[in-house]
Write a protein that binds this DNA or RNA. Sequence first.
DNA 1: CTGAAAGCGCTTACAG
DNA 2: CTGAAAGCGCTTACAG
Lengths: 360, 360
Amino acid sequence: MARENAGIREVAAAAGVSVTTVSHALSGRGQVSDETKRRVKAAADSLGYAPNRIARALRSQRSNLLGFVSEEIATTPYAGQILVGAQEAAAELGLMLMIVNVKRGTIDDPQIDALVAQQVDAMIYASSSHRVIRVPPKLDPARTVLVDAYDPAITSPAVVPDELGIGLLATRRLLEAGHRRIVHLTVDEDVPAVDGRERGYLEAMDEAGCPPVVVRVPGPATAGAGYTAIGRALETDGDLTGIFAFNDQMAMGVYQAVGPDRDLSIPRDLSVVGVDDLRLIADALRPGLSTVALPHAEMGRRAVELASRLPLAKPRRDQVLRLPGRLIERESIRQLGSLPIRDASGGGENPSAGATVTVS
Amino acid sequence: MARENAGIREVAAAAGVSVTTVSHALSGRGQVSDETKRRVKAAADSLGYAPNRIARALRSQRSNLLGFVSEEIATTPYAGQILVGAQEAAAELGLMLMIVNVKRGTIDDPQIDALVAQQVDAMIYASSSHRVIRVPPKLDPARTVLVDAYDPAITSPAVVPDELGIGLLATRRLLEAGHRRIVHLTVDEDVPAVDGRERGYLEAMDEAGCPPVVVRVPGPATAGAGYTAIGRALETDGDLTGIFAFNDQMAMGVYQAVGPDRDLSIPRDLSVVGVDDLRLIADALRPGLSTVALPHAEMGRRAVELASRLPLAKPRRDQVLRLPGRLIERESIRQLGSLPIRDASGGGENPSAGATVTVS
DNA sequence: CTGAAAGCGCTTACAG
DNA sequence: CTGAAAGCGCTTACAG
């Protein structure tokens, strides 16, 4: 894979100019006549010249490398998507990504040291799910961008999903389909995703004048948690018709609970919306699960763009970029239309009159 | 992130020797007295010296970089696991991975050119699922290792799962649990995974003297395909008790089919084993799905180890490393014990007497 | 066993 | 507008 091709000297010789002029002509940095520029470019093309990035990095003290530290890249499909977006943006900017995988909650890792030793221009630290973290102290906060994470202790910019907007989007979708008795199934974890989606739900229900019901079960937010939660929800309100699950896994638990155990079916009796757009789940469930896709690829993109400007950008405190989710429609939401199914009342009451069920 | 620390000159000054001696002492390449070596190392430590990898790469013409080209790293959790294994092995060998994501079936990609321009020492090309591919011509076959893929046209070493062994493992597990009427649900795709697992199934059934039944439905191997396949299987043999699904997604289709549509339950009436150990599915299904985990991380490891030796290794034609799968037990297999449930006959017949059902 | 010197392939003041 | 020269931080023949 070693490049045995022409170097800048060969190009210079072929074009009949000095290496300085080749460098200037190709980089556009110096003053070079158009004619010379043309000749140099022609020579470079015909020789298949590509600058040696290592030599360039050594001389210019810029590696054009971005470090990408990801927590548990393998355990969720999310990190992969962030990576793809980051990768694309990096390619467009002429940067390469150097990737390292660390355990969740890592403070110190020899791999991170290795990355620093590579003299990356900046670092991207991607969490495995939106939460508050402690950035490893090895990373220079002024040269680090956080993805799907937020560290209140430092001033690095962060790119995160707009969790509140996601809660609004999912809940409004159910409201627009005519549902009034909508429950939010969530977990008792103290992370921005849980908090933000719930606040979005409460806000949307408030707007619509519907009493909110939040069912909170012990985390993590798995199918099992969803199974437990929907059971509680149905005990609390046997007439509910809309379910906003914290994520697709919890939504899967709803599917598992309604079929065999009860005489309910989706979407006939219950409309369900999840979050994550985990294809493996959302596509495989019958009927397909409507869900809010998180902007992972876009987060990766934006993180790279921010990181590439980091050495130059002015430090801004609490610079956090919230990116919107996107509703992916499948078949789990029933349009109630003008005629209400079962008891679709509930308008006009104060949201504070709604229930919060906590299972522990 | 730029290292503003000591360079080799500072270490030399601190130790009272030349930079040559520092280089020799630290790399262990030249002849240096133990005493000098000790002094140099102490100086390096106290200054926190780390060699500049870029300078080293430029001078020694070895980048210590491995290119990792992955197809659609985001769409499956597999690629992530391969990456983690590769990452770990690379770290142990003092190598860094430079990662690029390409579309499935890519022949030409500017990202790959970029990787080549980085002067990586070798390349790893990881497919998104075990199949026959055409390696992009930009990659030097003598410096490329294939993962989860095989290109008959070139001589690059390849690291793949032992598909036949996986078929044997899954089928024998059902046989050992006392099942005799075991069906293999698969798809009509011409890839090594389909072919190998099926051959393993046939071999194991033959060993046990049980007639095999293969139900083949149109791909891809999704939950929907599994749903269709189990329907056909039950039409063909209403008394079957064991199901070896091509993968976890097809196994999920079996779960979806047995519950609501028929009076069958897992594992009471049907024992199911899948392949992939997709946590999102295998853990979430009720009962948990027993499945064969593919050796993804190990494949990544071995690929890096091979790649790191590639510039030195002798070219060996058709060097393919087959790594075994591992059975992950959950709750989807019932031990039939000594007393046969329903009709557990079927021994003694020739496998060729078995059926192959193809749905198109 | 130790060190002076060349050089990897570029970029970048600087001089003309 | 163009080019000679220095130098990024190492490694590596080579000489002593």
